[in-house]
C-alpha cells in the first residue's frame, strides 16, 4: 500500500515538475497576470487563426485559446510548419508556441506578442464539412412559393381597395 502511495506521489511530482519546466500558460493568464510574465519565456497552446502576415523578414500569426488571442512573431522556417489556419470550413492547426512574451513589445510599437523560438504542431488542422439542412431547403421553397403568390396573385380584398372600395 505504502509503495503505491509513494509511486503516485512520485508521478505527481514528476508531472508537475515537467509542467512547471515547460511554462505552459493559458493566453487568458497572459492577460490577467501580464506584468508577471512580461519579458519571460512562456509556452502557449492554441489554434492558429486567419492569415499568416508578413512583417519585414518575420511573420505574424494569431493564436486563439478560448476567447483570448495573442499575436505570435515567427521566422520563415517556423511559419512553414503551420499548414492550416482557422477560418470557415477550416480547423486551424493546434500549435504549441515557445517564446518570449512581451506585454508592450518595443520592437513592434507596443504590441502584445510572443516572439516564437519554437513551434510544435500538436494537432494538424484540416477541412470541416458543413452539411446543408434539408429543413432550410424546404423552408426556402415554401417561402419562394409564398412570395410568388403575393407578387402575382394579390389578395382580392386589396383589389377592391385599389378601386376605391367598389366591388366589381
Amino acid at each position: 500500500m505504502n509503495r503505491k502511495i509513494l509511486s503516485v506521489i512520485l508521478w505527481v511530482l514528476i508531472l508537475s515538475q515537467r509542467l512547471f519546466a515547460s511554462n505552459i500558460v493559458s493566453i487568458r493568464t497572459l492577460y490577467e497576470e501580464a506584468d508577471m510574465y512580461d519579458g519571460r519565456s512562456v509556452v502557449v497552446i492554441g489554434e492558429a487563426i486567419g492569415d499568416i502576415m508578413r512583417d519585414g523578414s518575420t511573420f505574424w500569426v494569431n493564436v486563439k485559446d478560448g476567447d483570448f488571442f495573442i499575436g505570435v512573431v515567427l521566422n520563415a522556417e517556423l511559419k512553414d510548419k503551420i499548414r492550416h489556419t482557422g477560418r470557415y470550413k477550416v480547423q486551424g492547426s493546434i500549435i504549441k508556441v515557445s517564446g518570449i512574451y512581451n506585454l508592450h513589445c518595443r520592437r513592434h510599437l507596443g504590441e502584445r506578442d510572443i516572439h516564437a523560438d519554437k513551434i510544435e504542431i500538436l494537432r494538424e488542422g484540416g477541412n470541416i464539412e458543413k452539411e446543408i439542412e434539408m429543413s432550410k431547403v424546404f423552408m426556402s421553397i415554401i417561402l419562394a412559393l409564398a412570395t410568388i403568390i403575393f407578387v402575382f396573385y394579390p389578395p382580392r380584398r386589396n383589389t377592391r381597395r385599389d378601386n376605391g372600395g367598389q366591388q366589381r
Binding site: 470557415y88 470550413k89 458543413k130 452539411e131 439542412e133 432550410k136 426556402s140 417561402l143 419562394a144
Partner: peptide, 13 residues
C-alpha cells in the same frame, strides 16, 4: 458556402 447561401435566400424571400 451553400448552407449560408440558403439562409440568405430564406431571409431575402
Amino acid at each position: 458556402e451553400w448552407a449560408p447561401a440558403i439562409d440568405f435566400i430564406i431571409s431575402s424571400l
